[in-house]
Write a protein that binds this DNA or RNA. Structure first.
Lengths: 335, 335
DNA sequence: TTGAAAGCGCTAACAT
DNA sequence: ATGTTAGCGCTTTCAA
């Protein structure tokens, strides 16, 4: 990499002249500016980012901590973050907590050494189970703002971007009730997560309000055989005529399993699930889905963080933004 | 962030003494070391990463450029890269090229300003179509090594990690021939990519060697309705009794569509596809898959790059590592 | 055993 | 209009 020093030497001027010329300072003479710019162009000069960061005490880099990059929703949020951050002139350093509290802490510590200006993260499963929040608070008190999305720690005072999980599931369940379904089950693979619990509660509320049926819930663990669990559940609970799925796989598997067991979907069995467009292609008929607009969530998180960084209203009140889901009717439910 | 300067002031010693003490230099007296370390501990001192990078002219950061983070395979490679990089003490800055040549170039340029020590990337679709490689060569000549994985540019001299796409598809096709399949079709959603072409060739070779059937290929474009295309293909080509799918969705959709059309899988229709474990759960019966060990690919890429960075054998010969696929038999093929 | 000073690449206040 | 200098935080050589 060519430096200001080298340019200055070659041009027989001082370093600061070169610097000013490149930064279009009024102070420098026209022809000097021209000479400098030409040589800089020739040598493909770019200001050293590290030196700038050191000088200005900010990196224009955001630390992003994702619990699981293989989760399609989280990957899509990351996509949204990256895109928005790039647009606003920021880079992102990505860490994957792998749902582990320890790794989450480590990532936070490791990047809080000047590598990044702030964080965007979704809380790891283990962290939610153990309900630890000290590492977040410590990071914020060190002057590094955090924006949390989707899985948030409610007791940490910071900006948040969340989904209307409760309402979305409540409304979806209501829809099934309007289809006159008599035994609506709830299937989830994410019972440990805050969002999983919210979705379950939304479902339960709608069911309990109906007064004619009781909640029927199947919680599947990560290590379980997903297909088998759903199959035996359907065999055991023969009267089930509708399913709400809290995660993207359960809905798909439910449809495919039901079809295989001889149910007509949606006639005998109506299915709604949280899923992306790509997922919804994986069942026949296509899954009626609750879409989470992951990209929008990511973009919002990036905006909120960068906004805070630039204004450095660190004392300004924190905001919580709710990104509403969309309900996309397809062929796995009646219309 | 607390700095050496602040510690020095508080301890009434010089900055260099503090620095040496913290780095366990022999020069410094025992008690001084102790005093310094205690205060550093108290204040949670960590060396400023940016200052270190500037001083040492290396960042211990890798730029990763991924064409599409929503592709499960690529996401998994990223997972592997992140894990291995973290283990070896490196951070990763992630850019998403979104299959665009322009964005790929930009990312390369933007990070080649001292932000990273080298790159790991998979070539964007547009770049492969236009066959552009100048930006890669330029980056390497600026002293930033590149490791390419999966979709590589063969004419760029750099380390590479690839999959045995040709052999894997060839062997899988052979397997179907051994099942005595008479009309084996090839379905692909990734015809534009180098790996897509390799897979098609592996299939075609096996078919042509058989001498009793001709290649039958369905290329689906990104904008097509995936389900519809496969359905009409199966309706039009009624004699098809086996399918090789080049991408993860086509195999799943093929099975579900076939079942819906009344085929018995695997009796009437045998299906093999490149897919991950998670994907293979999305069909009933489960898809017999060619697994790509994405995590291993990522880990290998990280190792190769970091190895080169640390030895800085920049002139050393470049290596190409082939990570072999596994063939996982499931219920969508006969045994 | 400790400290002073230089330098990584850059900007900006302050000379000239 | 151009140059000198200091300083961001750190390591390291050289001097005391």
């Amino acid at each position: 990499m060519v430096t200001l020093k080298q340019l200055a030497k070659e041009l027989n001027v001082s370093i600061s002249t070169v610097s000013k010329a490149l930064n279009n300072s009024e102070e420098i003479g026209e022809d000097t500016v021209k000479r400098v710019k030409e040589l800089a162009e020739l040598y493909n000069y770019t200001p050293n980012k590290v030196a700038l960061s050191l000088k200005q005490n900010k990196t224009r880099t955001i630390g992003v901590i994702i619990p699981n990059i293989l989760n399609h929703f989280l990957a899509k949020v990351l996509f949204g973050i990256e895109k928005e951050a790039t647009n606003l002139g920021y880079n992102i350093i990505t860490c994957i907590s792998n749902e582990s509290l320890e790794k989450e802490k480590e990532s936070l510590m490791l990047l809080a050494n000047g590598s990044v200006d702030g964080f965007i993260l979704s809380v790891a499963e283990e962290t939610q189970i153990k309900n630890e929040i000290d590492h977040f608070k410590k990071t914020i008190s060190r002057g590094l703002p955090i924006v949390m999305f989707d899985r948030v720690a409610h007791d940490v005072l910071c900006d948040k971007v969340i989904v209307d999980d409760f309402d979305a599931t409540y409304n979806a369940t209501k829809d099934l009730l309007l289809e006159n379904r008599k035994n609506i089950a709830f299937v989830s693979n994410i019972n440990d997560l805050s969002v999983g619990k919210l979705r379950e509660r939304g479902y339960a509320k709608a069911i309990l309000e109906d007064n004619s049926q009781a909640p029927l819930i199947l919680n599947i663990k990560k290590k379980d055989d997903h297909q088998k669990k759903i199959k035996s559940f359907l065999k055991k609970n023969k009267m089930v005529d509708a399913i709400i799925a809290a995660d993207s796989s359960s809905g798909i598997i439910a449809i495919n399993t039901a079809v295989n067991l001889g149910f007509k979907v949606p006639k005998d069995m109506s299915v709604i699930g949280f899923a992306s467009k790509a997922d919804s292609n994986h069942s026949t008929p296509r899954l009626t889905t609750i879409r989470q607009h992951a990209k929008v969530i990511g973009a919002n998180a990036a905006q909120m963080l960068i906004d805070r960084l630039q204004k450095m209203h660190l004392n300004e009140d924190v905001k919580t933004k709710i990104v509403r889901t969309s309900f996309i009717k397809s062929k796995s439910t009646l219309k």
